[in-house]
Simulated assay, not measured.
Amino acid sequence: MSRWIATFIAAACTLLGISAPLRADPAPEAHLRTANLHRAVEDGRLRQMIGQMVLVGFVGDSPDDDGYKRVVKQAEAGEITGVIYLGRNISSLEAVRQLNKGLQQYATAPLLVAIDQEGGRIQRLTGEVGFREVPSEATVAKTMSPDEASVVYQDLASDLSSLGFNLNLAPVVDLNVNPANPIIGKLGRSFSADPQKVEAYARAFIEAHRAKGVLTALKHFPGHGSSTKDSHKGIADVTKTWSDKELLPYKGLIASGDVDMVMAAHVINAKLAFSPDIPASLSRATLTTLLRDNMHFKGVVISDDMQMQAITDNVSFEDSVLRAVMAGNDILIFANDKHPDPAIPEKVAAILSEEAQRNPEMLDRIKTSYENVMRLKRKLGSAVSQETTVVRER
């Protein structure tokens, strides 16, 4: 506990001197802010802030596996904000519980322990290991009322929490615009084509998880439901098929304060990004102007997996990291699925640190993301709240 407190106090002391964005201002205060920011670069505290922006997958399902040992060390060093589980990490429920206990035990700061547990085809924890599965979103909306769905989702959240998970990367709020969509409609991942119905069931999902202390993330912003392709496998362009009604569930849920996170999609939507080449996840017009400024979202923006082919086939690793952060993502996911790279946190930190030393805007973006993430982590419980109160919203 004392290590967590010391870490947050040290970080807060740095942040106290950098509460305003840098500008070309000759005033002494501006020079002082610049000095404080660059001092953070020099003494390594910037690396701690960047660490809170990186969420990774790992290889292994046992404490003895090298992949698990590596993420434990990264958590202890403050190089990651959390981990994401895939099926490969799950051998038994008790093994998962022990893995998560170990991660939190050694972490410098509270970790986000994430999983995609939507229901139906998309759930990493399955009946094969004794986990209570839930129906797909499509089935839930067809067979249950929102109140009945809430009971199912409270059981789900309770089961996740008992294993040490505190973030479910769900619900999907994509509208079922194209039932033949290979990654949404065909898999039953959408509640409905009706925005109001999607909002009602998503709210039941979110509030059920919140009651059990589990965070959630709306996906896939600004809408993946009309796509004809799968962004895991390459470019998915929704410019001609997308409509602004796909934003309605986001608008309603954000307005009511029911959103912890929004996940940015790797779909191209030139109507919003004002470019036929920039995916939403790398678009400042989409994530900052639309989501932050126009829709007034104050929570955490998290990218979809940055190793999906929609990104890796078209943008270099370095450029994708820089553009994602400048667009407005607070956390970048690297699931390490097909081509695992345990050195991802170090590579991301090196890229962002170098850029921050020459670009005050990047430095300010990192600070803002750090504050957004730490504010989110205060929702995880009273123990976390007490240890992160030094990080104030500015």
Rank of each mutant, 00 (worst) to 15 (best):
M1V: 11
I5T: 15
A11Y: 06
A12Q: 13
L15H: 10
A20L: 11
P28R: 14
A30V: 08
A35W: 11
H38S: 11
R39P: 00
V56M: 02
S62F: 02
D64G: 07
D66S: 08
R70L: 00
E76I: 01
A77G: 05
A95I: 00
N100M: 01
P110W: 10
L111T: 10
A114F: 07
I115K: 08
I115H: 07
Q117K: 09
R121T: 09
L125D: 07
P135N: 11
D147G: 00
E148D: 07
V152H: 04
D155I: 01
L156I: 09
S161G: 12
V172I: 13
P179Q: 10
K186E: 09
A193N: 11
V198S: 00
Y201M: 03
H209L: 03
G213S: 02
L215P: 02
K219E: 01
P222L: 02
S226D: 05
G234F: 01
K240M: 10
W242I: 03
K245Y: 08
K251E: 14
L253F: 05
I254N: 03
D258H: 13
M261D: 05
R284C: 07
L290S: 02
F297H: 14
D305I: 05
D313Q: 15
F317S: 06
L322E: 14
R323S: 14
A324F: 07
M326Q: 15
F334P: 06
P340N: 06
A343G: 01
P345Y: 10
A356S: 14
K379Y: 02
V384D: 14
Q386L: 14
R394L: 15
